[in-house]
Simulated assay, not measured.
Amino acid sequence: MAKSTGTQLAAAARTEFGKGAARRIRRAHQIPAVVYGHGQEPLHVTLPGHETMLLIKNPNALVDLQLDGGATQLAVVKAIQVDPVRRAIEHVDLVVVRRGERIEVQVPVRTTGEAAPQTVVSVESGTLAVTAEATHLPEVIEVDVEGLQAGTLITAGDVKLPQGVELAVDAEAGVVNVSAAPTAEELDAELAEAEAEAGIEKDAPEDEAAEGAEASEGGEESSKE
C-alpha cells in the first residue's frame, strides 16, 4: 500500500530553544520538530501532539505541513526521538520532498502465509531499503512464506516489490529465513547450557533426592553397627 497525498499538519515556527523550551512545548501537548532538505535552511517548528502521534504510526509518513497557517510544504518523516522510559515523542525530523522526486527509505518487512509444518520463520532484516516516488511510498513490504520448506532463504532480490518501487540494497542480502523447528531435546540442551552459563543450579528430582537420602541413612546405620 502506498500514499499518494500527504496528511495535513499545522506547523508553527519555533523561536525558543534548549531543554527548558522543549519541556514547555511538550507540556503544551506539542512536539518540537525540524524541517530540512533541498538546500533550504533548517526550519524549527512545533507540531500538534495528538495528530503527530497518529501520523507517525505509519512509517515514512508523507506530510503536507501548513506553515503558520500560510504556505504548505511537502515532507516525509525521517527520524523520531522517543523517551526510553515514558515512550513519549521528544522530537521529529522531517525531510522536504517534491512531487515526482524519487527518494530512498527504509520500509518495514512483514511476512504473510504459513510456512511448512515444523519450521520457524525468521525475519533477517526488519526493514528493506528501497527507492520510490515521494508521494507513493510503501508503508510495508510483504513477503509470502506460504508452504516454504526448511532451508529456504529469501533474499532482497526475491522480494516482490510494489509497482514503481526499486531495490536499494544488495540483491543477495538475506531478508527472510525458513529453518527447521528445534526438537524438544535441542531446546532442553539449550536451556541447560544457558542455565550453566548463568550459574543456575537446578534442584535434584524427588526420586534422586529420595535415593540419596536412603543411601545416607544406610551409611549411618552401618556406622552404628
Rank of each mutant, 00 (worst) to 15 (best):
P162G: 07
P162C: 03
P162L: 01
Q163H: 10
Q163I: 11
Q163M: 10
Q163S: 13
G164I: 01
V165N: 00
E166W: 03
L167K: 06
L167W: 09
A168H: 03
A168E: 02
V169M: 09
V169A: 07
V169Q: 12
A171Q: 11
A171R: 12
E172W: 07
A173M: 15
A173H: 02
A173D: 14
G174P: 14
G174V: 09
G174N: 13
V175Q: 00
V175C: 08
V176Y: 02
V176Q: 01
V176S: 06
N177M: 14
V178I: 15
S179Y: 04
A180N: 05
A181R: 14
A181N: 03
A181T: 08
A181D: 06
P182Y: 08
T183H: 03
T183P: 04
T183M: 06
T183Q: 07
T183S: 15
A184G: 01
E185W: 02
E186S: 06
E186F: 01
E186D: 06
E186M: 01
L187R: 15
L187H: 03
D188K: 12
A189P: 10
A189D: 08
E190K: 11
L191C: 12
L191R: 13
L191K: 13
A192Y: 03
E193M: 10
E193C: 01
E193F: 09
E193H: 02
E193V: 06
A194D: 07
E195F: 06
E195W: 08
A196D: 05
A196G: 02
A196P: 07
A196Y: 06
A196R: 15
E197G: 07
E197N: 05
A198F: 10
A198T: 04
G199K: 05
G199S: 04
G199M: 09
E201R: 14
E201C: 10
K202N: 14
K202F: 05
K202E: 15
A204R: 09
A204E: 13
P205L: 04
E206T: 10
E208S: 11
E208G: 03
E208Y: 08
E208R: 13
E208Q: 12
A209W: 07
